[in-house]
Amino acid sequence: MSNVEKQHLLTAKQMAEFAANGFLKLDEIVPKELNDAAYKEQREYTGPGGQYWNESKVIREIFELPQVKGAIQSFVGRSPIYDHSFMHIVRAKHLKGQFYHADSVIDTRPFGFDIQAFYFSHDAPDEMGPTLVLPGSHLRKVSNGSIARYKNIIGQQRMVSKAGSIGFLHHGIWHCAQPNFTDETRYVFKLRLRPGQEQRSLFNTDDYDSPEVRDIIKKAQHRWCGDEARVNQIQIAKFWRYLCGDDKVDASFEGALSRMGI
């Protein structure tokens, strides 16, 4: 159980971006000395990827940083439950991209979610193949590799990152590892946490219904959704209600939630 200071919680604007896109990348929030130590350790680590979390003091120290704990608390509360972790490695010149998938299995929670933190200890430029994500795909019902037929989707984004950045991904987002065209191995440490409480009003909710924040949700009509973009946006607006802990806030397309009495 922990409780971070309000200044370290995510802002309403940040949380709206997460609701709209299914991920939020916090750039360079881990200091250089910890990144250097983690990168060195990762290059020398020979154990199984699933054990790294249990064997590394450095990675624990990183996830104890107040700015990291603040983000985690904003997503999954004060008592998150460890699900699993893995040190993912893409070797130099590994040129095959991973198949598009959503992690684990199809999830039956209407709006509850696990958070997956992707920590980059070193710079991960585009040619190094940082994880590819599809913004706005997180609330759709697919089952792990049931989207593996897809190869390219407009709006897809590689999480190009500087050392010390952490991407926080909704468990349902469509994503895949990418080819590494460089001569250096690419590392990313993934930590999956389950919520220890209902995920309502966990972030800094100041101004959550301001025009600026509402606009982020209203504009979340992703081009790849085509004709379904409006309905996809309505799902995002419902998710936003859940995150805000306010079942009346309405940032849906044309106020559809209010119109339909939802």
Binding site: K96, Q98, Y100, Y150, K151, N152, I154, Q156, R158, C176
Partner: peptide
Amino acid sequence: QLQMNTGDSNEP
């Protein structure tokens, strides 16, 4: 040999 890869193009 490589087929079309995930993420290898942004234009259809």
